[in-house]
Amino acid sequence: MAVGRYTTDLEQGDVLGPIEYTMSKFVVREYCHANELHQACYQGAEPAFAPPTLVHLDKLKLYKVACPAGTGPTARIHYQYDATLHAPIPVGVKLRVTGKVAERFEKRGRTHVVMEIDMRTAVDNRPLVTYRDTIIVSYQSASERSAA
């Protein structure tokens, strides 16, 4: 188990969280502003739901709790976003998010890590988003790093 060290050390089977938080209007509007999502459903005074892409930042929240030492010596590269949406993410409702490292494997000299993130309502356990996130631990392969 690599939980408790660097995020780049995470191993298959590691469980991160759960964490709980309430989605705020500020987070929806500010996140959407940063991503040029200016649609009325996100920038109105009372947004009812969050963009499902926000689930990706739950990974960072899970990292912060499970891997307080931070990123580690290499910057990870995001490779794939894969979100299955079960229902809109409500604003003002407590959410529960859990992460699990599903895979860690080598491909073309680079280490890939797949994390599955499950987002639900905290009160009644309704599934909202099932997210599969794939990262590459380092842009450079191990041989490139050692040659640098």
């Binding site: 991503n35 040029e36 649609q39 996100y42 739901f49 969050a50 976003y81 894969d82 299955t84 949406l85």
Partner: peptide, 26 residues
């Protein structure tokens, strides 16, 4: 990924943030 999501919202409205799927590879 968010720009793609934004275009889906433009096309389909809030339904694009409801039930379904979005997968992107960089």
């Amino acid at each position: 990924t968010n720009w793609i999501h934004g275009l889906l919202i433009d096309m389909f409205g809030p339904a694009a943030a409801g039930t379904g799927r979005l997968r992107t590879k960089y």
